[in-house]
Write a protein that binds this DNA or RNA. Structure first.
Lengths: 336, 336
DNA sequence: CTCTATTATGCTCATTACGAGAATAAGGAA
DNA sequence: TTCCTTATTCTCGTAATGAGCATAATAGAG
């Protein structure tokens, strides 16, 4: 591509697979921590759009992913285009304006062989507060709640404090408000704004410090969770939220499973993504009687108990139901 | 902005209001039909991002909308970034690559005063097949179905034909498949691909013809519905689909209504957007007992019958329910 | 003033979905 | 065999949904 442009469009891929009951994100070694010690910061596979070469945005993305990770993408979906100037990398691209177009891609665990310095990371390493499968993580919950209350209290005016309180309650399910798994981005953005994630600090200081360290007084207030390069953690949050929303009404989970699977495997993939546990019998009823899957008559014996029947996605459901998703419980939506 | 860039990012706004039971889109006079006679083709308000001036994408958008229509936007939401090279305007921007970032904005009918050559158009003038409030429009339905069958039959191989048939059935609710109001973009894209909308033809011929006329042999096959400049109709389709999806689980309808409204007004706005009619009593039960609205104790007498109570959006519902939408019926989602 | 057209609002009822869990089946391992 | 584990089938109470009947309250016609 030419370098005379004053505008660069970055293509970013959030590549998701589920292995061993955890959602994993494909990352590469991030740049920008050249002076830091410790493990390298993670980044998403990304690269600039070639305005002349890339016929479509998606093809450009696939090109970069192939080059950086060796993976040939299947299911790909555009997420969002980020372009706020105050949250863009300083220095690296010179004075040029950078837009980031985020994509979500889903791959099967079997296809997960990667090359180079690419590797799979537990998505919840970046968002520990999003995994509620063993109840709310108490340590995090306690620290998080306290830190958020500080932030609420530090509002300048009464009206600002009450609006902050409402945001906190809705985002984190406090004071009687139910938890909404879908609000992943909203939660991350709130933490960013409250200065509780590392990115809040180094976004503004990177130009000066040239590394990702923060002052000790800030360090001890940070919420657990790995930081990522640039705005990549924000893009991952967008992806996880979108994925959680989408499995409810489109059969995208099957992009993450082999052709044949047991209902428990299906359930566990859904649970891993949603970050909550599901009622086994009801889940079966949902997918089976909902026409989403069909039994193959074959049995799978590696269960540790009674063998399980193998199922596969029932393609015909696409014609029958407008919203064929696996559905999460507990939403209680009198408005659907 | 500087002109030496080889990449331009266009900001496009789909500004929606509902008046007189119809969803309306704010349009400006389109360019690109200089040699055509007849009414000017419509375009969305849009303009290029200024990489140096605009702090955020949304601010850039608000700037262009203000300038071109006089409207100060309230609710704004990003939709999608389009950037396929084979569907971008030829000529107008020279050799530069153009990306279009589409936005959805909602305004109240009272705020709908516009300036210059901006004006409100019935959204269903662009998508007559999307309005099912008086049953399926029979003329369109007949012509559409026949034309689509032709397209299916013209597939090269048997496998292509059956995959086309499935797409048609799912998109347009044929052969027992239920209609899914949400698939607005999918339907438009299918029609585009099948060569049944004007844009399919002039996208490729514009450079040659310099106008929007098509050959008579093509003309008579086209489906009713106004064309728009560039890929703007595609962006409007994205917006309508998104809006239809979103009213089901976020209280965005209220952005289109005055502060106080009757339940029938609320219902009619929802019906206008969804393109379907709703059961009145059940709709009332849904929003009232769902906690979405609260009565004001005041009455509205311009009903033509018994006066109706005035309601307003009940803000507290945001804390109580994860998905406070007005909900469309008939979806039957055993996967919730 | 009464009658009628029109819209608002309240209520019923059958059907279906949901949440929780009991009960039973079918493997492997001790 | 007995126990442990997972799979699978059912039941049951509660809540949401779809359809429609019945009643209330206004304006306007006569």
């Amino acid at each position: 591509m030419t370098l005379d442009s004053d505008l660069v469009v970055g293509l970013n891929a959030v590549i998701v697979a589920v292995t061993d009951n955890r959602p994993r994100i494909l990352t590469v070694r991030g740049s920008g921590d050249s002076t830091s010690i410790g493990p390298a910061i993670k980044a998403l596979p990304f690269g600039p759009l070639d305005p002349r070469g890339d016929k479509t945005l998606e093809l450009g993305l696939r090109h970069w992913v192939r080059q950086q990770t060796g993976i040939e993408l299947g299911y790909v979906e555009q997420l969002y285009t980020f372009g706020d100037r105050d949250r863009e990398p300083h220095g690296e691209w010179g004075a040029r304006r950078v837009l980031s177009i985020g994509y979500l891609a889903l791959v099967r665990e079997a296809d997960a062989r990667v090359t180079g310095d690419a590797g799979w990371e537990d998505a919840y390493a970046f968002f520990p507060w999003e995994d509620l499968r063993s109840g709310k993580p108490s340590l995090i919950d306690r620290k998080l709640t306290l830190a958020l209350q500080d932030w609420v209290a530090s509002g300048a005016e009464s009206s600002e404090r009450s609006s902050r309180q409402e945001r906190v309650d809705i985002c984190f399910g406090l004071h009687g408000t139910p938890w909404d798994g879908y609000r992943v981005l909203e939660r991350y953005e709130l933490l960013y704004e409250a200065g509780l994630v590392r990115e809040s600090w180094f976004d503004h200081d990177l130009a000066a410090h040239g590394n990702l360290d923060v002052a000790p007084s800030v360090e001890h207030r940070l919420i657990p969770g790995l930081a990522m390069s640039l705005d990549h953690r924000r893009i991952v949050a967008t992806a996880l939220g979108r994925l959680r929303g989408k499995i409810r009404f489109r059969p995208v989970v099957f992009e993450l499973l082999p052709d044949e699977f047991t209902l428990l495997q299906l359930q566990q993939v859904v649970e891993a993504l949603a970050g909550v546990e599901l009622h086994k019998q009801n889940f079966r009823r949902l997918v089976d009687r909902g026409g989403l899957v069909e039994g193959r008559g074959k049995l799978h014996f590696q269960t540790g108990g009674r063998p399980a029947e193998l199922f596969r996605f029932r393609h015909g459901v696409l014609r029958e139901r407008p919203t064929p998703g696996v559905g999460l419980p507990g939403l209680k939506r009198p408005g659907l």
